[in-house]
Design a protein around this nucleic acid. Structure first.
Lengths: 181, 181
DNA sequence: ACCTGAACACCGTTCAAGT
DNA sequence: ACCTGAACACCGTTCAAGT
């Protein structure tokens, strides 16, 4: 079978879920595909591009239009919750998305998505929400896998509750500040 | 001169500012100190520990008690602004702090600091602010150095304005939601 | 106690050469 | 057009041995 971006991203995702981001190396991806490491560089300019593609794959359900050819309209609370759910559903998902956020196009897509989900679309509101969401899930996943390693000690935190409260704080603040600004 | 944590962290910081985080390697730090790479491992258990120490050094003015032996009390807006200022004053500062945030002790210290700066100390408020602050500055620094590389194209964004508005949104939201919760 | 030398097991990336 | 082989220039970490 011929190599292409899709199959390479498939392999990357499977390595990610099996062993984590630090083991998602170009060489291991190549080995999984039974191909020389250099082969990947015909399809991706560098590793950053593969990480970007991996992040896009993780967020695909939110980014891609559905079968009817449109992205379903949701409210901001739901959009953020789904963003979190998608990142959580993959090992090191938030780390991958955070790394890919340096790509201006993905960042803009996500900001636009969130802005559109707000009652009153707002650039700064979307910016604030996006960076809270990614930061919070990053912290959540880091803490969880630290607990797994050290042996499960640590107060149980209701991450979902904490997350949605944070989102609500920002949404409420956004409404309250619009009059002042 | 004998090696110790302080001198090693000094060298790490100077490499960071000169060449960025990706060039702050154990081997380069050792070379700068004219020492074998293995020597560092007598003082730091691994690289993560050195990164943690580097983050602490960057945030020292906020973390350490002043000459009078107490940390000065500030409001949340100022505390966040100083957090941003400290990260910005070092190359890849936000990336270093973000990486060190996986250390639970530093994370807790910062959350406590922010919580204490709020009118009504609030765990979730501190959590929300901290992750927004780090995420926002991370984005700011990434975008700025991308513009330097690609040659200065891109709409000018008033990062400071955007940042403080984001902080204000969260603080206002925090006040507004306390009654509801 | 503190450091060197030398090795181990990796990385990302490039590029002539093959098909 | 697409991939292999082989190299280049690195990494973090360990550890016997030295002082």
């Amino acid at each position: 079978m011929q190599l292409n971006k899709e199959s390479i991203t498939d392999a990357a995702i499977s390595l990610l879920n099996a062993y984590g981001l630090s083991d998602m190396t170009m060489r291991r991806v190549a080995k999984q595909l039974e191909v020389a490491p250099g082969a990947l560089y015909w399809h991706f300019k560098n590793k950053q591009e593969l990480v970007d593609a991996t992040a896009r794959r993780i967020l695909a359900p939110l980014l891609e239009p559905d079968v009817q050819g449109r992205v379903e309209k949701r409210n901001a609370q739901d959009t953020c919750a789904q963003l979190r759910a998608l990142m959580i559903s993959h090992r090191d998902g938030a780390e991958v998305v955070s790394a890919a956020l340096s790509s201006p196009t993905l960042r803009t897509e996500l900001e636009t998505l969130i802005a559109g989900a707000l009652d009153t679309p707002d650039e700064i509101g979307a910016f604030t929400l996006l960076h809270f969401v990614v930061g919070a899930v990053l912290a959540e996943q880091t803490q969880l896998q630290l607990q797994e390693l050290t042996g499960e000690e640590g107060e149980k935190v209701d991450f979902e509750q904490r997350f949605s409260t944070g989102v609500q704080i920002i949404i409420v603040g956004l409404d309250a500040i619009r009059d002042i600004r």
